[in-house]
């Protein structure tokens, strides 16, 4: 009896981690981007590009790892466009981000038609068969691929990079004030490029993980606003990579619960249930916003997004 409970718990954790991995990656990317003082609404488009082109490459070359790489690059290329517009040409970041998002949606809808119904092999689970069949670890090892551990490790690495290295110090400084950073001899634009491109790479990877590892299919607009959710959840995670993991897991848990509820044939519209994680997300946002020090963690440079510079 206990063993079955453990297995059940394990499979919930595994499902949550699996479902949370794409969000974790894109949330981490957006966190790093906003830390250098740039808001990138284009992550939605970048994720879609990563999902579409990554899936295409994986299907054509029968190599999921290559697909992940191609997906990450697709995200990078779109973030490059955002950078040219808002770092080099000083276009308003909101406008530029929306433009990148629409571009990503449009291109993938067009290109992605040929990939509908294609098949990818997906990634191998961490362990094929586990000796002791009934334990907490069994579902974790058989249901998870190496993506989830990678995502977890990346958040930790990013946290250490941001808070314990000179590079991270420079990123945070630029995110607080480009003017002060320039006065201190840093090159703000270069630093912003670093943060933005890292974010682009991670959001592309997140999209590819979604299509290649998680759903193993391509569908038009399959990210369903996950990129934009990430932009909102950055606030909940207080621009802190170490908080990305718990925040993404909360959302993953909500997402999994909906699937379980559907599987249990709850007598509610599936559309309503599908909206539940977003309502949940909104709830967290309100709760965190009620805190007294809600603005204390926000990089001051982000306020400049709404000013003429």
């Amino acid at each position: 009896m206990d063993e079955i409970n453990y297995t059940l718990a394990g499979s919930w954790v595994a499902a949550s981690l699996r479902s949370a991995s794409p969000l974790m990656l894109v949330l981490l990317g957006e966190t790093l981007t906003q830390r250098v003082g740039i808001v990138n609404l284009g992550v939605e488009g970048q994720m879609l590009a990563g999902a579409c082109f990554g899936f295409g490459a994986a299907a054509v070359f029968h190599d999921p790892v290559l697909g992940l790489g191609v997906g990450a690059l697709a995200g990078l290329v779109l973030s490059l466009l955002h950078g040219v517009l808002c770092i080099q040409l000083r276009v308003n970041q909101i406008a530029s981000g929306l433009c990148v998002m629409m571009l990503g949606t449009g291109i993938t809808s067009y290109v992605g038609r040929v990939f509908v119904g294609a098949e990818v092999s997906g990634l191998a689970p961490l362990a094929g068969q586990f000796a002791s069949a009934q334990s907490f670890w069994q579902p974790l090892l058989t249901q998870l691929t190496w993506i989830a551990p990678l995502a977890v490790v990346l958040t930790l690495v990013a946290g250490v990079l941001l808070f314990r290295t000179r590079t991270g110090l420079h990123w945070r400084t630029v995110g607080e004030s480009s003017t002060v950073a320039a006065a201190l001899g840093l090159r703000p634009r270069l630093v912003q490029w670093q943060g933005l491109l890292t974010g682009g790479l991670l959001s592309g990877l997140a999209g590819a993980v979604l299509s290649i590892d998680y759903t193993q299919t391509w569908a038009q607009n399959m990210t369903k606003g996950l990129g934009l959710i990430a932009v909102g959840l950055v606030i909940v995670a207080r621009w802190n990579p170490f908080l990305v993991l718990p925040v993404a897991l909360l959302f993953g848990l909500a997402d999994t619960s909906v699937l379980r509820l559907q599987a249990a044939a709850v007598n509610t519209s599936s559309y309503l249930l599908a909206a539940a994680p977003y309502v949940f997300c909104l709830g967290i946002l309100v709760v965190t916003h009620l805190r007294a020090d809600r603005d204390a963690h926000m990089p001051a440079g982000l306020k400049a997004v709404f000013n003429d510079r």
Binding site: L169, R172, T173, L184, P299, A300
Partner: peptide
């Protein structure tokens, strides 16, 4: 001052 308010004195 060329200080970043959100960072610590040491940083």
């Amino acid at each position: 001052f060329n200080l970043v308010p959100a960072l610590s004195v040491l940083e």
